[in-house]
Amino acid sequence: SGVGTLSGSYVAPKAVWLPAMKAKGLEISGTFTRQVGSISMDLQLTNKALQVMTDFAIQFNRNSFGLAPAAPLQVHAPLSPNQTVELSLPLNTVGSVMKMEPLNNLQVAVKNNIDVFYFSTLYPLHVLFVEDGKMDRQMFLATWKDIPNENEAQFQIRDCPLNTETASNKLQSSNIFTVAKRNVEGQDMLYQSLKLTNGIWVLAELRIQPGNPNFTLSLKCRAPEVSQHVYQAYETILKN
């Protein structure tokens, strides 16, 4: 499984994004990280061809949240056959925006001295959860009331054997903040907020019943198409 970092959100293990057979011997694995406000694409490049690889560069297509490389892809030496190099590419969110389907789809082009190769990958939405995503309590109540009921989505998080405090702490390390907590008829109700890099707020109610590993998550957002991906982020964070 992946690793949680002390000062950042959950990092999934690297997955193969571009198999060597589709890229004339270049294999790319990667994952996304967010640490103290910085987003990175962590990459592993392997040369499975018979010739040396040089002149690497990377480019992203326009995407839903404007993710873009914040620096060139720096492979300092030629990559020999059978050689692997690990890189961390810093990203920002000031690139061109175009709504993708699914919302978290990222199309990437990588070139080297042999050719240009294309692949798509999905980024976990929690790398976009900003550090100042704790909404003021008064604002939370007003916003919760203001967002229409039809913008509320409800999800079940099953088989999650955490107590309320552990769940809340885990979520907070991925920038999902508990604004208030109440206990009604034996169940804990956590009211939480998060903010995406593009300024979109998401409000949540997480219901946890002691001894019941199934949580109920209700999400309210003015852009309800993000709710499904925020739910996925909750699943990933709570179960890792």
Partner: peptide, 20 residues
């Protein structure tokens, strides 16, 4: 702690969500 009415408002919200 200052009673700004928000504690009570959150209690009402939680109550209304449990027993609509």
């Amino acid at each position: 702690e200052l009673d700004d009415g928000l504690d009570e408002a959150f209690s009402r919200l939680a109550q209304s969500r449990t027993n609509p």
